[in-house]
């Protein structure tokens, strides 16, 4: 299956953007920690955090500034591919923001970012109580 995430770079990844956690606390995007996402999801009534392991990263066929990242999602290891701009940041457990092209992410967004690699475990969301 394939999921399309926003193909233009959303404004909330720009350094200094104010993010509201589920308990109302405000933080800058560059200051977010793994625990902030986990605790926010615990409070949330409809969202839960899933672990998404990067299985493959490829350049896109359609355009050079896009990458296709294949994830193995959740306990059932569902295969999900997303096509994203190479500078699109994902949050890696215990590590922080990472992208296919961290230099570009830092250049465009000033967001401190490391290189997204195969084996990295990213934070993703799914719906609670699907059945």
């Amino acid at each position: 299956s394939s999921t399309v995430v926003p193909t233009s770079l959303p404004p909330y990844f720009i350094k200094g953007s104010i993010i509201q956690l589920a308990d109302g606390e405000l933080k800058r995007v560059e200051d977010l920690k793994t625990e902030d996402f986990i605790q926010s999801a615990e409070i949330s009534s409809d969202l839960k955090i899933d672990s998404s392991t990067v299985e493959r990263i490829e350049g896109s066929i359609s355009a050079s500034n896009f990458a296709v990242v294949q994830f193995s999602v959740g306990e059932h290891r569902a295969q999900v591919s997303v096509e994203v701009l190479v500078e699109y940041p994902f949050f890696v457990f215990g590590q922080g923001w990472s992208s296919c092209c961290p230099d570009r992410t830092t250049q465009l967004l000033e967001l401190p970012c490391t290189k997204l690699s195969v084996g990295d475990v990213c934070i993703s969301l799914t719906l609670k109580n699907l059945r």
Partner: peptide
Amino acid sequence: VPVFPWHSLVPFLAPTQSD
């Protein structure tokens, strides 16, 4: 100053069962 909800930063990856 705009304030964004935490969940907008996280990609929504809905797992699909491949039974």
